[in-house]
Design a binder for these strands. Sequence first.
DNA 1: TCAAAAGTGTTTGGGTTACACCCATGG
DNA 2: CCATGGGTGTAACCCAAACACTTTTGA
Lengths: 237, 237
Amino acid sequence: MPAPATTKPYPMPFVRVELVVLSVLEDRLQVLLSHREEAPYQHLWGLPGGVLRIDLDASLEAAAHRVARERLNLTLPNLGQVAAVGGADRDPRAPWAMSVVYRSLVQPDLDATPGKRVQALSWRPVQELDRAEPLAFDHAALVHQAVESVRREIADMRFPPGWVPEPFTYSELRILSEAILGAPLDKVTFRRRLDASGMALPLEGQMRGGGAHRPAQLYRLGEPTVALTKANGDKVR
Amino acid sequence: MPAPATTKPYPMPFVRVELVVLSVLEDRLQVLLSHREEAPYQHLWGLPGGVLRIDLDASLEAAAHRVARERLNLTLPNLGQVAAVGGADRDPRAPWAMSVVYRSLVQPDLDATPGKRVQALSWRPVQELDRAEPLAFDHAALVHQAVESVRREIADMRFPPGWVPEPFTYSELRILSEAILGAPLDKVTFRRRLDASGMALPLEGQMRGGGAHRPAQLYRLGEPTVALTKANGDKVR
DNA sequence: TCAAAAGTGTTTGGGTTACACCCATGG
DNA sequence: CCATGGGTGTAACCCAAACACTTTTGA
């Protein structure tokens, strides 16, 4: 029986993983950017990322986790793939470069610190990306794609585990959602949709009284007990 | 000023493009498969695909188009990226292999003929993929992902251009949609949603009379005049 | 007592679903 | 005239949205 021929006579592209780390800070959806000290796009901001290492990474997702660990010194929750992009003129360092883009929604208190080959990290509101100086490479477009996918998720009330600081009140969760969607949500509708989903489990006897207000019930996330009826793509209309 | 260093000391993965070509034949959603004559997975069926050629392909999508041309002898309409997968044990021919998956919804009369390195092509109902013999590699999972994305599209009434044979009647379009979704659709609701969208433009005076029935109005696709109100993810609820 | 946020009841409106019914045609 | 699929009218129903209102707390 002939051994499986390793037919790989073709040059392979330069493959990277880029991270779109999103969080709500100061009531706005922001993205974590890394300052570029070297060419290309020197002195601009871009997404943290790194080269795929086939000797270290068991899978694409594992590569994303490794890059997060190396560059940001942390483990990202709810990592999800956004897309893969690639072309001949994406990166002047290689004749042909592709990037697999992952995104993560994190809590605002996430403690990202500059790791290997990273000098500075900074949060930047996604709404301001189009203004001011551009991002390196095609990273602005990648951020937009990631934001779109996150907005769909939140609009459908599929809250990524590890994102919501638990326990939480309905108002806290709604305000976070509003920041991500960039639009106000109806207080009553939000409450009733969340109630109907069965995803929020009340913590008996536990309330949060912040100021001169009526204290609010605290909740933690559970599994949805009923299928969401709308906008989740599951139900056939 | 130092020239941008081509820092690529790392071995790169084996990168392929796989095609999930879907169509409705015999009232069922089917996928176009290619018979494997060689190892690995010899004698099994798998997705048509090919190696990314950085000397030939300007982008990932261009690579998908080239592969379609070479393997299937045709130009695929409404090509869309599904996902990228990759890992160390995906393909015995290489130590680390990744695939970028594209999908296309085509008309049933599509004339795909076996091209380079393809011996036989065959349509297979997606519902039967789990039964009978398995597909090569992780291709069954890739088909499922592609089907999911197509179902979302059709459920939201975003009909890919070039998919619907024009002109068409509402019933024809509904029956195609039902085959893709794998579930019956309400006749009246389908008509009214399509009316409301303004996407279907009536062809004045043109009807189709098939049998002993009242002839049906013929339509062609246009641009949606009003934003779809539900399930399209655009509107914030 | 007042302000402010939490939480509930009710109504309205838009879209889906279901059902009844008419229309047009060939057999 | 009858079976069959095309197409319309009407009512029920579900859910989001808007509004009013009560509750609970600290100042």
